[in-house]
Amino acid sequence: MTAGGVKISVQDLSVTYGRVRALKGLSIDVLDGEILTIIGPSNSGKTSFLRCLNRLIDLDAQAKVRGRIRLDEEDIRNGLSSEDLRKRVGMIFAMPIPLPLSIRDNITYGPRMSGQIDKAALERIVVESLRAAYLWDEVRDRLGQPAQKLSGGQQQRLCIARTLALNPEVILFDEPTSGLDPISTAKVEEAMIELRKAKTIILVTNNTKQAARVGSRTAFFLMGDMIELGPTADMFTVPRDRRTEDYIVGRFG
C-alpha cells in the first residue's frame, strides 16, 4: 500500500495539564500507509499528541483536550467508544511492560477480551503476530513461559506482537527503542518498516537518526507547536525552519 488518503485528521488539537499547555492548536493529517515520525525535544508535546490519538490521555484526570480528531471520517471523541478506538489504534510504549501472564496469553489477551474464543483462531493469531514482530523463532518453543522472563528487546517485540494481534489499522510507537540495545533496535525498526505495508504508523522518537531511517514524513514539534512537517528526506537535508535545523544537527534539545 502506498501513502494514499487521509487516515487520521487532526484539527486544532490542544492539550493542557492544569496551567501547562502541552499542545497548542495542532492541525495535521496522517496519511494512510505512511510512517509519520515525530521528533522534538522533551516537553514538545509529542507524547501528549500520541495519547490523544488513542484517548489514553483520558486516563489522566488533569489533562484537558480540545479540538477534533477523525479516524476515517469518524470523530474519535464522540463517535467511537474508547475501547473500540484502541482496538483500531494500537500503541507501543517506551517501557515494554508485558502483562503478568505467559507469552501466549499476552498475545491472546486482546483478542479474547474482544470475544474471540476459538482456540485454533487464537493459536493462529499467536503465530502470525509473533512472526510479524520478528519474535517467533526466539520463543516458538516456550510460549507457556512467563513473558517477564524475556529480554528487554524481546519484551518490546512481544508488546508489538500483542498489539498486532488485534489487527489495528494504526499503530502508535512512543519512543519504542529508547531502552533497547542497537541490535534489538534494528529488529524493531525492521518490524516497523515491514508493518507499513498494511498499517499506518506514527513514531515518536528522540533518536533523530531513527526518524530519518524509517520515516516517510517527519514532523518537528517544539514547545507544543508543530514547527515543520514534510517528507523525511527533505526534512533531514533541507529543513525549512532554522529551529528544525538546529535540532537536527544537535545544537539544542
Binding site: N54, L56, L59, E83, D84, R86, K87, G90, M91, F93, M95, I97, P98, L99, P100, Y109, G110, M113, S114, C159, R162, T163, L166
Partner: peptide, 19 residues
C-alpha cells in the same frame, strides 16, 4: 504501565481491574 498496557489493547476499565 501495566494498566496503560491493558487499556491500550482495548480493555475496559473493569477488564483491566480484573485481569
Amino acid at each position: 504501565e501495566y494498566k496503560e498496557g491493558a487499556v491500550a489493547l482495548g480493555a475496559t476499565h473493569w477488564q483491566t481491574l480484573v485481569r
